[in-house]
Amino acid sequence: MTALSRRTWPFGLIARKIARRLANAVLVLLAAASLAFAALHLTPGDPVTAILGGGTQTPSPETIAAARHEYGLDRPISVQFGLYIARLASGNLGQSFSQHMPVADVLRAQGPATLALMASALLTAWLLAVLSIVFAVGRRTTAFARTTETFFAGLPQFWLAILLLWALGFELQIFPPAGNRGLRSLVLPTLSLAIPLGGFLARVMRDSFDLALHEPFILTARARGTPEWLIRLRHALRHALLPGISLSAWAVGALVGNGVVIEMIFSRRGIGRELFLAVMTHDMPLVSGIILFIALVYILAGIATDALYVVVDPRLKATRS
């Protein structure tokens, strides 16, 4: 829990912190890229056959040799690795062999769809979680909310996705079954990701929330006659937000991973589907490009989380007000 241990850093340290973060980010990216390279070279299997259209085709030996040469697959591994890192360092992600286009173009085409889904899932999850903890007042309602949250948190996303697709997409036809067009097509995939995540977030935040409700400043506010819902929303919630925020950085990473299956089920375009195709064809440049993309999203999410911490941290606010 990085952020928890540094609750009270002064603002002057932020610049240094950012510099360190950046250095760390570069290291993480480098390691992820090397791991991706190693993983695909450890895996037996000749990408050339996949490039040439699979096993039912009849490429001539000359065609195979030409393809191997074109992608540098005929060079020693160490040379391939050196070239690969040098190319990455110059900002070139390379050419995907299976998609016949630059990896950067693939990411540019598929990234927004995945990012949109992730963002809407994260927002919806937060909305569900906050609604649940703020408005579940009273012993019985709270117990009920707790049980529901646990249940939601335990739902497998893809199972939920299939059931939602069946009920709302096929049977009731409320939402379009296939999903790249318009906001409405975003609803079912978002819900499938957001409901379990929302349950999880709520479970994590509820404990701090309940603790905060017994803090002295809440009692003072109550004594002042502030309405209960306002107290919950304005004062107690701030405390509950912290664990939720730190969890969100993790959630963003998890969303990309779970997104693969969700994108497949709803026939949505996106990075996840592209990753699946790339992995199946051992398309090294594309796989490592996507891993770098995920790493970058994860790093940015971490930075955003830390920034939010500063904004939200009740102690900082408390000392100022």
């Binding site: 040439l52 259209g53 009849t58 490429p59 001539s60 065609t63 074109e70």
Partner: peptide, 15 residues
Amino acid sequence: VDPHTQSGTAGGYIR
């Protein structure tokens, strides 16, 4: 039939 085309099917059929 050009090897650089990386043709599996068409090139394979007219070897």
